[in-house]
């Protein structure tokens, strides 16, 4: 009996292995609104919370979520946090909310979310749930009337490298992995229950213009741009630091190789003379010598993440300036009227 059970579990595990890859995140409106509320209430402090939902084939449904209290660096409080999480899950199950963790959400400031912590959290979650996702919401961009909601996951090939701690030049070349391949963005679909759809249709105000339209059409975007540029410059500094590290490493490496060559030549010459004298040759390697100790290669992870952030800022700057150009031309057309 136990045997068949084990077998069936195995089978289940095997069939799960073959599950289709994650294609789409389907979010319920209520989950989106909850995330927005939590992130906005605490902005500019960055907050996180847990996503609940169901994993259905290639679709991951996010039907609800709950916020985490702001974390403090204290072990006692950390244990408290775990309790809080369990309690919340238990309570939500009692009112028939989907009781299955599918990932977490977090707020961000202008998209500066690509950090080592994010990757580590991801790896932690991934250990327990096979398919998880991180929803990133940027409250600072809602001033522009934009819903900055993103669903991310780590790419499989990157995860494998990270798990084996293999983020070195050689491995990356082997896997053909570049900074663009760390995160994968997954498209978000929105779904609502029929009841909510009906309620919203009834409640929708009849004003032709909403606050969002004002926000979107506001001409000045300089403060946003300024902050974006500031972050960009900071990241550039960080990147050049990383580059220096690599240069240092390569310089050391080439120096070491030159030393090794010199040592080898000396040893060979010595062996020649010993041979001439009829003695046994000395070995051509000496592991005790410090010049044969390999220099550790610095991890590429930091520079990859920084590159990702820079690319993100560039995209945002491009986006905002593109929109501003649109607005300026609209303004021009209005003035000419």
């Amino acid at each position: 009996m136990a045997n068949t059970m084990a077998k069936s579990f195995l089978q289940v595990a095997a069939t799960e292995e073959a599950a289709p890859p994650l294609r789409v995140i389907q979010m319920e409106g209520v989950a989106i609104l909850k995330i927005i509320k939590h992130c906005k209430d605490h902005s500019p402090t960055l907050v996180t919370g847990q996503l609940l939902g169901l994993d259905v084939g290639s679709v991951l449904e996010v039907t609800n979520c709950f916020p985490f209290p702001i974390r403090e660096e204290d072990e006692e409080i950390e244990a408290d946090g775990a309790n809080y999480q369990l309690e919340m899950m238990r309570c939500l199950r009692e009112v028939n909310v989907d009781n299955n963790t599918v990932g977490w959400y977090q707020s961000t400031l202008l998209g500066s979310f690509q950090t080592v912590e994010l990757i580590e959290t991801f790896m932690n979650y991934q250990e327990n749930i096979r398919r998880c996702v991180c929803i990133i919401y940027d409250p600072s961009r809602s001033d522009q009337g934009v819903l900055a909601l993103k669903a991310l996951k780590l790419s499989d090939s990157f995860m494998e490298l990270y798990r084996n701690n293999n983020i070195t030049g050689e491995k990356l070349r082997e896997k053909n992995l570049s900074w663009v391949d760390i995160f994968e963005e997954i498209p978000i679909k929105v779904s609502n229950s029929a009841l909510i759809s009906a309620v919203m249709t009834k409640l929708k105000p009849n004003t032709p213009v909403t606050q969002c339209d004002y926000d979107r059409l506001r001409l000045s975007s300089s403060s946003l741009m300024e902050r974006n540029m500031e972050f960009l410059i900071e990241c550039m500094d960080d990147l050049s630091m990383e580059q220096q590290k690599f240069q240092f490493y390569y310089r050391n490496l080439s120096r070491q190789q030159a030393q090794q060559q010199a040592w080898l030549q000396k040893r060979r010459a010595e062996n020649m003379t010993r041979k001439a004298a009829g003695e046994d040759p000395l070995p051509e390697e000496d592991p005790t010598n410090h010049i044969f100790k390999p220099i550790p290669e610095p991890s590429r992870l930091d520079s990859f993440l920084i590159t990702n952030q820079i690319a993100n800022y560039c995209n945002q700057i491009n986006g905002v300036s593109g929109q501003s150009l649109n607005k300026l031309y609209l303004m021009k057309a209005l003035q000419e009227d």
Binding site: V190, N192, M200, Q323
Partner: peptide
């Protein structure tokens, strides 16, 4: 309704929306 407005009434009114409109579309 401000928060709902931020998400977009069209997004919240329908039972299924294929994607969240991006910046240029809302603009």
């Amino acid at each position: 309704m401000e928060e709902a407005d931020g998400v977009g009434f069209d997004t919240l009114k329908a039972t299924a929306v294929d994607k969240i409109p991006n910046e240029l579309e809302v603009m």
